[in-house]
Design a protein around this nucleic acid. Structure first.
Lengths: 239, 239
DNA sequence: CGAATAGTGTCTTTCAGACATTATGCC
DNA sequence: GGCATAATGTCTGAAAGACACTATTCG
């Protein structure tokens, strides 16, 4: 390595933040995408992309606050579950120059979201299993989305993450459904209930009538800031 | 969010990469630290710091190749186990300005390292349990080191990561020792052997005499590039 | 009273942890 | 042959998965 003695005089990389925002809507896991602006000088004009953009050193105190700002702008949600996913940086990922993006992923209940339509820019939910129509995602956002999905699916096996996708209060059958949606496979009811309750992240909120024949107990999270880790992962018995 | 239509005209954050390099030496988990340069304009002069520095857009194709370059510079090691840890960015972490660092962590066998002493800059191994003498670590490197330790200790519970800390070939008792060093607790021999062998990441290399009364089977990794995940974590029986 | 969903009980099998035992090589 | 370490065997208890059963509400 050469001089760290001083700030280097060569070009600084571009610094951006992107947020992968998940929710469950219509029984599917969905991700929020925005359309890139049109224009001859724009990278990936009109393509769908993850919400994000440049770090603004005048507005943002930190990477995380930058991510929260973008999240608030797009969804109106103040404090969803938010975790850092990783960073992607190379000289080729953005045609405008050497760029590094810091990716976050967020989980929130669909009903909390007020999609903002500003200046002809559309934010829209897309099922993660159906690629958005038209061109592929802008930049390396397909890679980032893929990584976010893998992280989510892997953590769902042993954490309370899916609870952040539901509006409160929710019932255990509803929560189980979300686990099944994210995992893509059925989950045993009895085992699920035992584990979820034993993990101790739920507070009872009284019976809840959700339209099914028999009302079920409503629950809310004890702590909407942090996920809870189960001692062992869910796993179908390997025969 | 405002204009992503164009590259913003305000200041760009500084972009750096730091590497947390672990090895096992003298029966302890150790981390490689370097001394910050001295000088009136230097941030944290003379303090110990993680090896790292600015991304050089002329030299580095990507964040990872930047990390590998710094690793090679400091240790001479070409391809250790390397994984991204996360990023830390804020306006206050570096007195020189808004800065974002991309942290990686690397595992390597101590004997592979040729510590380079250049221009009076010292790279030196430090046991992770003993804070280095003098001032605290530069920047937020104590936080980063802490995060790396947590990541390592957590992954050791259910992956083959410790194998990357040993020179090949190694024996199972040696490997078990490394697990115990990183975990900070004893591990049952029988269970360890069963799990390690069942995980299928080892290749037999013939008997190895390591000075103990009875020679033990030597092993090497089938794949030095990737860690293997165990189906279930190690865990002492919770009585 | 029947249908549909909520919630509980029970059985079985797996498997990790604990610990005892055997195997091997060296002095 | 004894000692130290390597390697394997055995037992047991905990717990997860599978599935059957009971409970509750509504029409």
């Amino acid at each position: 390595m050469m001089a760290t003695r001083d700030i280097p005089d060569f070009e600084r990389p571009l610094t951006t933040v992107d947020v992968v925002i998940f929710t469950v809507l219509d029984g599917q896991l969905q991700v929020l995408l925005v359309r890139r602006p049109d224009g001859p000088e724009e990278p990936f004009p009109n393509a769908w992309a993850l919400p994000g953009g440049f770090v603004d050193v005048r507005l943002d105190d930190s990477l995380e606050s930058c991510a929260r700002r973008k999240l608030l702008d797009k969804t109106g949600v103040q404090s969803p579950y938010l975790e850092q996913l990783g960073s992607w940086g190379s000289k080729s990922r953005d045609p405008r120059g050497w760029s590094a993006t810091h990716a976050y992923f967020a989980l929130l209940p669909a009903d909390a979201v007020q999609l903002k339509q500003e200046e002809g820019k559309f934010a829209q939910w897309h099922p993660v299993n159906e690629p958005p129509p038209g061109q592929p995602l802008a930049f390396d956002h397909a890679d980032i989305l893929q990584a976010a999905l893998e992280r989510l699916r892997s953590k769902v096996e042993y954490t309370s993450l899916p609870a952040f996708l539901l509006p409160e209060p929710f019932t255990l059958p509803q929560l189980q459904k979300v686990y099944e949606i994210v995992l893509g496979r059925p989950v045993d009811k009895s085992g699920f209930r035992t584990r979820a309750l034993a993990a101790g992240f739920l507070d009872e909120q009284g019976l809840l009538d959700v339209g099914s024949p028999r009302p079920a107990m409503g629950y809310r999270l004890k702590d909407r800031a942090a996920a809870v880790y189960f001692p062992r992962p869910f796993s179908p018995r390997s025969s």
